[in-house]
Amino acid sequence: MSQMPPNGVKNPLLELQDVMFVGSGKELLARTNLTLGSGGRTVIMGPNGAGKSLLMRLAHGLLQPSQGRIVAGGNGSAFPRQAMVFQRPVLLRRSTIANVTHALALNGVPRRLRRPLAEQSLERFGLANHSHRPARTLSGGEQQRLALARAWAIEPGILFLDEPSAALDPAATKAVEDAVNAFHANGTKIVMTTHDLGQARRLADDVVFMCCGRVMEHTAAARFFEAPATAAAATFLRGELVLDVPAPGCSTQ
């Protein structure tokens, strides 16, 4: 089992230490140790029900682990500012720009700075013309761009994305991938899940492969797609998408 990060992680940003999660009496995430380094784009892969979203929600702090803890990397440093983009964006019943200014307000940005920052962010994602439209009247692709703009405005240290383009057409998917790269270029750590192998190949610097509620391996992307360390990952990559039953190799861990 190779849960070790690829080549050792140089600048740990977030560490999951012996994290376990139990829900309604079932172990949904087996004991996990995972170090997320700063900078790169980590893609979490695996079949449905593998626990990808769960792992991400634990790392982001939306769920509290049943055991273990999540610490900011580098001894005693503060948690980086975080944002998350969901598969289906939850937008406030307000104007497009108010969605961004509200996120800024929650992050303690002074009132006079919110509007200009929000405008810059909307401009960046091609939504400047829609500033005053009710956010929920935007199209699906525009709504996801607004979710990205909302995250962009607060300049997160880590951006989590949970299958951000699963419900989108190719053009909107391209926009999401461009955005991910823009965040990355800006120094934001990316942690995302996707079911799209092509997307994972295009974006990943390192891959966390999960199966049946465990992290099977954490491997540099180039190596993962060439020669994954686990049988389950190899099966998964061959396209034998095992959706309901455990993939071979899961249970041996």
Partner: peptide
């Protein structure tokens, strides 16, 4: 809930947000 928690809003802070929305 998830979206607001993700943006760093606790339950008390969520009250005015939810009342307005």
């Amino acid at each position: 809930r998830e979206q607001l928690q993700s943006m760093g809003s606790g339950r008390v802070r969520a009250i005015p947000t939810l009342l307005w929305d």
